[in-house]
Write a protein that binds this DNA or RNA. Structure first.
Length: 472
RNA sequence: GGCCCGUUCGUCUAUCGGUUAGGACAUCUGGUUUUCAACCAGGCAAGAGGGGUUCGACUCCCCUACGGGCUGCCA
């Protein structure tokens, strides 16, 4: 029984996506966990682009991944590392393994391997490819292209001590001699990750559990090179609401799609942190708090399902918690992201002064804009069907008189209340009967903030002008 | 096929052998109210199935079912 390795070395985590598309929401969460773990402990968080597959890697994808991370507020230390740029180093290590005898040259062609597998399949069994070159005498080597294969142990077992999955035992006879260096001299993923993680001093490998099995083979490379094995933490993938692997048919899968839907980044972080991780009953927390609380043993072992309702609720809390300046700044960024025109003065100032009464009810930025409609629209205010019903001849008359009374009142909530209540009393109506036409005049909608808040935000002149428009 | 991982309210989860199995989201009911939202109070709701181990299992072990992953000169 191997005890979890004590790690005295500095904490270094990394996110290592392959640039074959946008940043997946699951990848974003993996990055977040790495970031939280490192940043919460004064460690480093590195970013490496696994672009060794030249066919599928694109610079556009890399740019999209960087944008997604940046939006999520995940900053990395140092330069972004390109795995492809390090191919010489990978080859160097492969040859060191050769020299150490922990790897060997294999001259088997892909055709031979395919034939081997086909034959095994025909027999109804599944056999791992066993290279005849594993123990061949170098004197018999032909002058042909070769791959460098790991000389993996064929007996015994490899034990992965995982911070999330616990102790995972993989029998060595279920693993073949993986290829480390291809016949064209380029490294395979399995070699490249290990070499890069080692060279980058990565202490904790936190990644999707689709790599759990790979960890065993990678651990063999660490051992073959006598390198210190990192702490493993394989986290479950995110699933769609139906429990199946998250895919396009579930809706948004890209981080940038969530940005475009207008979710505040802090809310997104909170939701993603809490998805598959828990610390007691903590639900809503700031980034600083999550940095403080996050740990690896709070991560669950089962895949979590995405729940938009909870995402919205979490984002709603963050909208309400946000400072007005931060809200405006993120709103600007949101509008740029969705290619909408910026909100400029004087509407901008009005909107900002209205935030206090709309941010508590909004869950997303488009939602915020919609709730602040009264502050952004210009005279004459167009009434929708529902609000227009409140404007009959009687209520118009009441508003007309009210307009006159508003000329000289102190523009404070207390004084406005006095005036409005007096108007209700004079006309022998309940406050609702007055608020409805007033709301129609000020907002043009039946759903809007409190009439007092709207009057305060709009100011005396604008309020009176909007009322006058109605009675005219 | 083989190997690996997983399975607590509809959802995210707490529990780390002894609890009326707790919280949050969703949902339902009531309250507040000036509309919507918010807010407040309350309700409904869970250990996949079967065997063990134990005085006692959600918790430990085994089997089954279901879900996921790996099994590439992809990452």
């Amino acid at each position: 029984m191997t005890a979890p390795m004590p790690h005295s070395r500095p904490i270094v985590t990394r996110f290592a996506p392959s640039p074959t598309g946008y940043l997946h929401i699951g990848g974003g969460r993996t990055a977040l966990f790495n970031w939280l773990y490192a940043r919460g402990r004064g460690g480093k968080f590195l970013l490496r682009i696994e672009d060794t597959d030249r066919e599928r890697s694109t610079p556009e994808a890399t740019a999209a991944i960087l944008r997604g991370l940046t939006w999520l507020g995940l900053d990395w230390d140092g330069d972004v590392v390109s795995q492809f740029d390090r191919k010489d180093r990978h080859a160097e290590v492969a040859h060191q393994m050769l020299a150490r005898g922990t790897a060997y040259k294999c001259f088997a062609t892909t055709e031979e391997i395919a034939a081997f597998r086909a034959e095994a399949e025909a027999r109804g069994s599944y056999a791992l490819f066993q290279s005849p070159w594993r123990d061949a005498d170098p004197a018999t080597y032909p002058d042909l292209p070769y791959v460098i294969r790991m000389r993996a142990p064929r007996t015994g077992e490899t034990v992965i001590q995982d911070m999330v999955q616990g102790r995972v035992v993989i029998k060595n006879d279920t693993l073949d001699d993986m290829i480390c260096l291809r016949s064209d001299g380029t490294p395979t993923y399995m070699l490249a990750v290990v070499v890069d993680d080692h060279d980058m001093h990565v202490s904790h490998v936190i990644r999707g559990d689709d790599h759990l099995n790979n960890a065993a083979r990678q651990q063999m490379i660490y051992q073959a090179m006598d390198w210190e094995i990192p702490v493993w933490a394989h986290i479950p993938l995110i699933h769609g609401p139906d429990g199946k692997k998250l895919s396009k048919r579930h809706g948004a899968t890209g981080v940038e799609e969530y940005q475009a839907m207008g979710y505040p980044a802090a809310g997104m972080r909170n939701y993603l942190t809490r998805l598959g991780w828990a610390k007691g009953d903590a639900e809503i927390f700031t980034t600083a708090e999550s940095l403080n609380m996050f740990d690896l043993d709070g991560i669950g072992r089962a895949p979590a399902r995405l729940d938009f309702k909870k995402l919205e609720n979490t984002c709603g809390h963050h909208m309400a918690m946000m400072e007005d300046d931060d809200l405006m700044r993120e709103l600007d960024a949101y509008l740029i992201a969705v290619a909408q025109p910026q909100i400029i003065e004087p509407a901008r100032a009005t909107l900002k002064s209205a935030l206090y009464c709309v941010k508590e009810r909004a869950k997303t930025f488009p939602d915020l804009l919609d709730k602040a409609h009264f502050a952004l629209s210009q005279r004459p205010i167009e009434c929708d069907e529902a609000s227009a019903k409140a404007l009959d001849s009687v209520s118009r008359g009441i508003l007309k008189i009210l307009t006159l009374q508003l000329q000289n009142v102190n523009w404070t909530k207390a004084d406005l209340e006095v005036i409005l209540n007096a108007a209700c009393a004079a006309n022998e109506i309940g406050f609702g009967k007055l608020a409805a036409p007033l709301r129609a005049a000020l907002a043009g909608r039946s759903a809007a903030p409190s009439v007092f808040d709207m009057m305060l935000v709009l100011g005396r002149d604008e309020t009176i002008a909007r009322l006058a428009d109605i009675s005219a």
